[in-house]
Amino acid sequence: MNIKNMIEKLELDEVTNLSNDIEFENVYIGDLLSVVMSNAKENSIWITIQTHLNIVAVADLIDIAGIIIVEDMEVDKDTIEKANELEIPILTTDKSAYEIACGIYKLEN
């Protein structure tokens, strides 16, 4: 599935300024960085409520395709800057992780 397509269908807000023309293969939900590090597969969409700069470092290290920050969390400016630099899309929504995961599932099936 394509990130650009998902943004449109799920009405996600873009906080990064990237083309988003990226294919992802998996979805992972998690807020504990060590757990995400050891379990999220590469090319995943990572759904989280974390907003700190460290999420970009983690995403970069394990080749996450893009991050969706849920529950209307405000994203730190540093986080957005770093994500633009490393070309990792960050998308936001007021929906919950569950709603977004169901939304992606429906798009795929």
Partner: peptide, 16 residues
């Protein structure tokens, strides 16, 4: 609050 503290860091190092 920043997402650390799962207590999985050292076990992850060991597992990898």
């Amino acid at each position: 609050e920043l997402g650390f503290g799962a207590g999985m860091g050292l076990p992850n190092i060991n597992n990898c």
